[in-house]
């Protein structure tokens, strides 16, 4: 299972970003291997359509679960059509590591 967390920086110790499409980084956690990889969000600075573009990026990276504070309608539709599960996690000031822990402990609400 590959889980994506939108973040302000590339490291697991960096803060989560509450925005999905305009988050500067995506950290992807691989639940099987326990490793993380991170990517700069190519759509973050876009004029428009950042939600669908970010969704396409996650689909291309074979992400199965997105853990985010909030998400726009177009991105939500695109991710769902791509079979990605969206889990809501809204804890201001928490890190990517905290978000991964919250995912592992279960109980995050599905959007």
């Amino acid at each position: 299972m590959r889980i994506c967390i939108p973040s302000k920086g590339p490291e697991p110790g960096d803060l989560v970003d509450e925005r999905f499409g305009r988050a500067p980084y995506y950290v992807i956690f691989d639940a099987e291997s326990g490793t993380t990889e991170s990517y700069k969000n190519p759509a973050a600075e876009g004029m428009g359509g950042v939600g669908p573009r970010a969704a396409q990026f996650l689909l291309d990276k074979n992400v199965q679960v997105l853990v985010t504070a909030r998400i726009g309608g177009n991105a939500l539709g695109a991710l769902k059509a791509g079979g990605i599960t969206i889990l809501l996690y809204d804890q201001a000031g928490s890190t990517v590591r905290d978000a991964i822990a919250a995912y592992k402990s279960g109980g995050l609400k599905e959007q």
Binding site: P52, Q56, A78
Partner: peptide, 18 residues
């Protein structure tokens, strides 16, 4: 098509292009 579009108008999902 989706990667080309600079405006995010297309997304290639699992079974169709949105």
């Amino acid at each position: 098509c989706a990667r080309f579009c600079a405006f995010g108008a297309l997304v290639a999902a699992k079974d169709r292009v949105l």
